[in-house]
């Protein structure tokens, strides 16, 4: 099977200049990253601000070009300029600020923006817009102004705008960073539904730990490198290591870890309240 996203020794460097425009230094934002994401996967990339996780997202969408190494999206080389629009159509991208990615003043017209750019015939655009809005649960808002929506709703409209381009993969660059807890839940739930029902590959970039629990795989980045990788349970069982990368763990995971340190016989990588209660029963 063709891989959805595949990279080897991916590097991105940029030159920093001082006020006079002289070269100040070279920053390696992404430093030798090897990725292997299969179609239908739900992968989360964790890392603190400046860890290079957003740069990777922009490379996948061919907004930034790799300095070294290679990156293929569904078999297409992102450095190949002839494939640029194919790559962008295959891997749609959702950004952090919901306001700054909605182009039209009516929800349905915004969702239509992508298909319009692709030259999709009018009748098909209507079908796609309706499907996409239904998939994110925003169909009843199709004639509303985006300005009147909540942050979570705006972000779902942005996701619908990508879905209407029929991508195989969605890359989301901290889509919940500016949302309140309810908005965050809405967006994450929508992503899991799209992943399950429409079989879209999801690459979720975030720094919120509770959002990655449902992912198939978690990748932790620090200083441009992949430093941890595995199922959420595998990653969250290493509380100390996560903390050294300036990341959190869910409260219940931390509690279990603290209790284990204090001598209680608890298993590693507890992720939910239910698991914790169950494990504690075994202790008694």
């Amino acid at each position: 099977m063709k891989k959805m996203i595949e990279s080897k020794n991916l590097v991105f460097e940029y030159i920093r200049r001082d006020e006079e425009g002289n070269v100040d230094g070279i920053i390696r934002a992404v430093d030798g990253v090897t990725l292997d994401i299969q179609p239908g996967d739900f992968v989360a990339i964790l890392g603190h601000n400046g860890s290079g996780k957003s740069t990777i997202a922009k490379q996948i969408n061919a907004i930034l070009e790799p300095t070294e190494g290679y990156l293929y999206v569904d078999g297409k080389d992102v450095s190949d300029h002839d494939k640029l629009w194919e790559v962008r159509q295959t891997a749609g991208m959702v950004f952090q600020n919901p306001d700054n990615q909605i182009i039209a003043s009516v929800v349905e017209e915004d969702v239509a923006f992508g298909p319009e750019n692709l030259g999709v015939p009018t009748e098909d655009i209507w079908v796609r817009v309706e499907e996409a809005l239904r998939a994110v649960g925003m169909l009843e808002y199709r004639t509303h102004s985006p300005n009147k929506l909540s942050g979570g709703q705006k972000q779902r409209v942005a996701i619908a705008g990508i879905m209407a381009m029929k991508p195989k993969c969605i890359v989301l660059d901290e889509p919940t960073a500016m949302l309140d807890p309810n908005g965050r839940k809405e967006v994450i739930k929508t992503l899991h539904e799209l992943n399950a029902k429409e079989n879209v590959t999801v690459l979720l970039i975030t720094h919120y730990m509770d959002e990655v629990i449902g992912a198939d795989r978690v990748i932790v980045m620090d200083e441009g490198k992949i430093v941890m990788q595995g199922t959420p349970r595998e990653v969250f069982s290493q509380v100390e290591k996560l903390k050294s990368y300036r990341l959190d763990v869910p409260q219940v995971t931390e509690l279990a870890w603290e209790l284990k340190k204090a001598g209680m016989p608890l298993p590693n990588g507890i992720l939910t309240v239910e698991e914790f209660t169950e494990a504690l029963k075994q202790c008694q």
Partner: peptide
């Protein structure tokens, strides 16, 4: 907070 739910669950047990 999540730990509040943990304690409620334990009490229920």
């Amino acid at each position: 907070p999540q730990v509040t739910y943990v304690m409620e669950n334990l009490k229920a047990q």
